[in-house]
Design a protein around this nucleic acid. Structure first.
Ligand SMILES: [Mn+2]
Ligand SMILES: [Mn+2]
Ligand SMILES: [Zn+2]
Ligand SMILES: [Zn+2]
Lengths: 140, 140
DNA sequence: GCTATAATTGAAAAACGTTTTCATTATGAC
DNA sequence: GTCATAATGAAAACGTTTTTCAATTATAGC
């Protein structure tokens, strides 16, 4: 189960398991929509009363550092997080609710290499993201 | 000349031409590297002494609203601006100095439509950006 | 060119999201 | 259970962006 593997990852990297971390991990490991720190805070307080927003920031920082979550950039803001993509995956995100799907299958490395060459750049990374409306938000 | 067409665009939309706006337009219309508000401010004060940072914010806001500049998202921050891309162009950006090149020729619309369909999403937009090192920064 | 009007300006203050500080609490090794 | 210390939450500090406001300036009409 994902929650446990995330907790193990924290532990193996010398971090202690606290109720605050358990709650944030539980939330982030299962979310299918991108969440910013305040949203994580609001949606986690029930499971962990007394939780501080500061701790949410600190926990997200550690989860990102361990590669378990990734920051997601969207037209409306760039401080939301999602579980990390695996391998060469990209994101399809709902403009309205932040619901995300991962996809793969783009094959542009040759094209990117050519673009780099034409401009004298060495290319180290690419960002590809699709935005649209998820089934739920289309219905509204 | 680009500066003049930008100034005309401002004027035609009911905005007055001031020395502050001329200076910011002069800078933004010609920059090849992504600049954030403070950088614009610092690089514009010589041309317009007494310029306020607030005015830079307000002018960038208007230039973006008129579609003359676009916000650029980068791993290190998301508040820099560049002259807008034309047509279906994407950005290749230097990780070190922010130098940007525009490119086109990606042809992924069918692929994107398929990804959308498979997930029940209607797709309205895509972001594609390449990051690397420009010739100058490679040499350093 | 001069005047009247309203847009624009910069300084200061406020607001905002995020980070740092610090005394207290809780975890995990022994 | 004891102990060392990592982690916590409250409060303060911080950097960035926005709002407020009185003074200035651009422009339309004369
Ligand atoms: Mn890719
Ligand atoms: Mn494209
Ligand atoms: Zn949605
Ligand atoms: Zn460079």
């Amino acid at each position: 189960m994902t929650t446990n593997s995330w907790l193990t990852a924290l532990q193996e990297n010398g971090y202690r398991l606290t109720s605050a971390r358990r709650a944030v991990v539980e939330k982030m490991a299962h979310t299918r929509t991108a969440l910013n720190p305040l949203e994580v805070y609001d949606q986690t307080r029930a499971a962990c009363p007394g939780l501080g927003l500061v701790t949410v920031y600190r926990t997200l920082e550690k989860l990102e550092e361990l590669g378990l979550i990734q920051r997601v950039h969207q037209p409306g803001g760039c401080n939301a997080y999602l579980p990390s993509a695996h391998g060469h995956q990209h994101l399809l995100i709902c403009r309205a609710c932040g619901k995300a799907e991962y996809f793969e299958g783009d094959n542009l490395d040759e094209f990117f290499a050519r673009v780099g060459q034409q401009n004298g750049f060495t290319i180290s990374e690419h960002w590809l993201q699709l935005f649209g409306l998820c089934p739920t938000c289309q219905a509204k």
